[in-house]
Design a protein around this nucleic acid. Structure first.
Lengths: 202, 202
DNA sequence: CGCCAACTATACGGGATGTATAGTTGAGCT
DNA sequence: AGCTCAACTATACATCCCGTATAGTTGGCG
């Protein structure tokens, strides 16, 4: 159900798959989600349309695979390292906001494409569950660190603060600020850090 | 471009239009955005598919008209009254959070359907601009009231606080909390008010 | 009671998804 | 160097949308 029909064996297969993902990403980022069709992807990758279905059972499969591909290619792991390595829980919050601003421009297209269907399409919902779980783990980690040092503001429990912090990293929120309000990435990181400190730090 | 092809004249016309909007809303809320097709709407309203196009030039037109219809039918104006009537700027923030929680469940389906396409579809983008302008007017009003009484926290300007407050009323954020985190509406209103006070009130 | 707006029936063209089938090519193994 | 089979192509099909066209029918309103 998830991913390609079979494990990639051939070198040719891996090459084609990579070309398809690259084509899909380019279409998505250059012309929006509506342009990401199976036919257009095939054409751009230089293969037949039928061929796309040999790698991705459905359009949803392609999108999910593309999401994972982009996140891996863009080095999400590197970006989050400073958050975990921060000297104290408050600095970690600052680094977290910076991290969110840093990765967002690189993954926006594909993240938005999936996120906006996650509540109406079971394929995307399943994928989103996995992603959200990871995100929440980090949020909980940050809040617990605050709490351990007695810095968590009295109005929150660990659970409610984790929920709220996770909700605050919403893609919609960062896009509202950086696109609709024309904030810079740094402006987002700064003000978001301010907000988080004001909200969660005693 | 916007709305029906002509102003409704006949009583029959108004009746059909109302039936179409009701059918569209029911489909959207019961079976999700994918189920809201011109054909299904026609069938549910008991008219021919061709007839839908006599009232709404495109599917996007139907959705936009539906949005306005739902917001009017659900009495958005009544809900926001306590916000404007609050005795002081801080209480107004509380009322604002309560208001957001109050209206969201009633407009969720249609608001989501439009919002998720607003960045990729010009028809929705145009409509969203109008909606966002109204929202920002209220946010600015609340922030200015705070500032007037010297209560706006030092880390914000009127402009940046307005932007942030507007971003915080994001549909995504409230849905993350009330759906993914299983918060109650009251829980959302309480914690959101807490967050806003902590962030903006000196 | 007649008129005309509103509606129906039907069909068409374009585009998308996903499936079916038969044939072709090329990477990798011996 | 040649064989083989996975990978790919070509083509066609069923199904579902959207939006448009045309000709005919009905019902509200003056």
């Amino acid at each position: 159900m998830t991913g390609p029909i079979a494990v990639p064996t051939n070198a040719r297969s891996r090459r084609t798959r990579a070309a398809l993902l690259a084509a899909a990403r380019a279409l998505l980022e250059e012309h929006g989600p509506a342009a990401l069709t199976m036919g257009a992807t095939a054409e751009r990758a230089g293969v037949s349309r039928r061929s796309v279905y040999l790698h991705f059972a459905t359009r949803a499969d392609l999108l999910v695979a593309l999401y994972d591909h982009v996140y891996e290619a863009e080095g999400l792991d590197d970006s989050i390292r400073p958050v975990l390595a921060a000297p104290d829980p408050v600095a970690a919050l600052d680094e977290f906001a910076a991290h969110l601003g840093r990765i967002r421009p690189r993954v926006r297209a594909v993240a938005t494409a999936i996120q906006r269907q996650r509540r109406s399409d079971p394929d995307f919902a399943a994928h989103w569950d996995v992603v959200a779980r990871d995100q929440r783990r980090i949020c909980r980690h940050l809040i617990e660190a605050l709490h351990r040092e007695g810095l968590l503001a009295g109005s929150w429990t660990i659970a409610s603060a984790t929920d709220m912090l996770w909700a605050l990293m919403s893609s919609d929120l960062i896009d509202n600020l950086t696109i609709d309000c024309d904030w810079s990435i740094d402006g987002y990181a700064d003000h978001m850090a301010t907000l988080m400190r004001a909200a969660f730090v005693a």
